[in-house]
């Protein structure tokens, strides 16, 4: 779309405004990088610039002092576990809603819509008490079930809206060849729907990696905490050791930056998918 033929002067002002706004988004993140490789002594004289001496050992120190080998394993376990559980159950449901036309499925869609609008604070305390009863407190399994449930409506909707476009003839042909319903799902629907599973997986994975409230509430052992809540504890423990704190934050951000470089469009499409459907 060309809104208008812009004159040169206008173009310059457009670019200037946009650049200033883009810098307010990016410069603070750059600062995080700079500070993660800055030695502690330098913060007093050079709080905002590129480090005069580069100290990569910040990362090593943070990794050892924060026992990050364990913490990153925890976070990865949560992400992978959630993805397996969430994509399995949402994939099955999305397929059924899109292609098996169950009677009364509209009621289920309304249920999911109400489900997404319930604020987490409404149910976090009873959930906490339930999880205590079930012995799921302080366990990764407990958090995985929570994350899978919280992200289920989003994943189900996204997968359903993709599978709805698949031609019915494909499934009819397989049925004639004697495939049962489960086979229709994993032999036909699953292999051709991988793009939507990738998008859903990226968005859900990102949400789990960054999640704070439930991780704060449901895991109290330092050795079991994911990176988000460990960083929260780290901030007060190493209050003014900015090099270490920033290096930790960069390590938490690194996987996201790398994935974002490869899958920008998928991330953006997935995270904004609610809006385009209205």
């Amino acid at each position: 779309m060309i809104v208008a033929k812009y004159r040169k002067r206008e173009l310059v002002s457009n670019y200037t405004i946009l650049t200033i706004l883009a810098l307010t988004c990016i410069l603070p993140i750059m600062l995080l990088f700079f500070n993660s490789i800055k030695p502690q002594e330098e913060f007093g004289i050079n709080p905002f610039g590129f480090p005069i001496t580069i100290r990569l050992a910040n990362f090593v120190d943070a990794w050892i002092m924060g026992e990050y080998a364990q913490i990153f394993l925890n976070s990865s376990k949560l992400v992978i576990g959630t993805l397996i559980l969430n994509l399995t159950v949402s994939g099955l449901a999305g397929f059924s809603l899109a292609k098996l036309y169950p009677r009364g499925s509209n009621a289920f869609l309304v249920y999911l819509l109400v489900g997404v609008s319930i604020p987490a604070q409404m149910f976090i305390l009873p959930l906490f008490l339930m999880w205590k009863e079930f012995g799921l407190m302080n366990t990764h399994l407990g958090l995985i079930i929570i994350y899978a449930g919280l992200n289920a409506p989003f994943a189900t909707f996204l997968i359903r809206s993709y599978m709805i476009q698949l031609p019915d003839e494909l499934f009819d042909a397989a049925k004639i060849d004697g495939a049962n319903t489960l086979q229709l799902f994993y032999r036909i629907a699953l292999p051709i729907s991988w793009p939507v599973f990738l998008t859903t997986g990226l968005v859900v994975g990102l949400a789990v990696w960054n999640e704070f409230l439930f991780a704060l509430t449901f895991v109290h052992d330092d050795s079991k905490k994911p990176i988000a809540t460990i960083l929260f504890a780290f901030q007060s423990r190493f209050e003014n050791n900015w090099g270490l704190v920033n290096a930790s934050a960069v390590m938490m951000m690194a996987p996201i930056v790398i994935l974002f470089m490869f899958f920008q469009r998928r991330f953006i499409a997935g995270l904004t998918s609610g809006a385009s459907k209205g």
Binding site: I29, L32, N210, F212, A228, L231, A249, M252, I256, F267
Partner: peptide
């Protein structure tokens, strides 16, 4: 896409 904890720290 940043975690809340990271934006806050920045």
């Amino acid at each position: 896409m940043l975690a809340s904890i990271i934006s806050c720290q920045i």
